[in-house]
Nucleic acid binder design. Sequence first.
DNA 1: TTGTTTATGAAAATCACTTTCACTGACTGG
DNA 2: CCAGTCAGTGAAAGTGATTTTCATAAACAA
Lengths: 143, 143
Amino acid sequence: MKRVKKKLFSDFIAQKGLKSTRQRDTILEFFLASDRHMSIEELYLKVRAKHPNIGYATVYRTLKLFAEAGLAREIQFGDGQTRYEHVNEGEHHDHLVCTRCGTIVEFENPVIEKLQDEVALSHGFLIETHKMELYGLCPKCRK
Amino acid sequence: MKRVKKKLFSDFIAQKGLKSTRQRDTILEFFLASDRHMSIEELYLKVRAKHPNIGYATVYRTLKLFAEAGLAREIQFGDGQTRYEHVNEGEHHDHLVCTRCGTIVEFENPVIEKLQDEVALSHGFLIETHKMELYGLCPKCRK
DNA sequence: TTGTTTATGAAAATCACTTTCACTGACTGG
DNA sequence: CCAGTCAGTGAAAGTGATTTTCATAAACAA
Ligand SMILES: [Mn+2]
Ligand SMILES: [Mn+2]
Ligand SMILES: [Zn+2]
Ligand SMILES: [Zn+2]
């Protein structure tokens, strides 16, 4: 899995005529080992703890690259921080977000997806992406 | 309709021990007359055209008040601008957003809403709000 | 009116990126 | 190898959209 992702990234690097660097390898390593929804800052701090010489700008730029390479996706939960999540070929999911503790749960619901397409169609829209987030209290925070 | 909203706001003001000011009345007037999805800047410019003495900070603070009073809702379409839309008692809708021209179409779909509740329930979440946006090309931009 | 308290506007401060720039360090092709 | 070339990096400066501060003004209760 990690191997596959690393291959995907190095292929992307090669095909784009970019360079393979220690920093990119390190950041990819940490990204692959990370929680599924990391802000740039969070990942930067994790990387920084082991590699104090890697700058914020590099983490920022590298995450953009991951997104371009199809390894990561930018997400926005309205807390003012951009997050990056892992992308797996052919997968799609939406999110439940706990408004108290921040827990994020992923879910898939093909029926909803299908209805979304129908809604779009009925308004003449050609859908490219969508965003669906359900905000509320997670089981723990309900108690 | 406008009358009802104005009453709602003045009641909110009174009940909170806040003050009724010319600025707030003016901004409410412009908000009620506005498009359904205005950024702070957009509303500020409209107000400013007629009332050059009203500051950005006041528009900003007043929109927050409208949201608190239940007159407005903050929305975020990922273009880096916070927008405010009108809230009508007992109404709810989601959005189709054109990625080319920015057109926003509102829609309601009770079936999707119901399925969302079921998803939340099945994960033990108690939903407070949700967000669903479908991004793509509007009929005009498809051509 | 007066006194007290909240509101306002201009400007400064924040925040989360995003870009710049001088210096590094990958790769190429001799 | 080995230098030359060009992309990559990190620190710092710049951006854009808020968000807060603070001196002054305006509500409104007494
Ligand atoms: Mn989805
Ligand atoms: Mn909805
Ligand atoms: Zn929680
Ligand atoms: Zn369009």
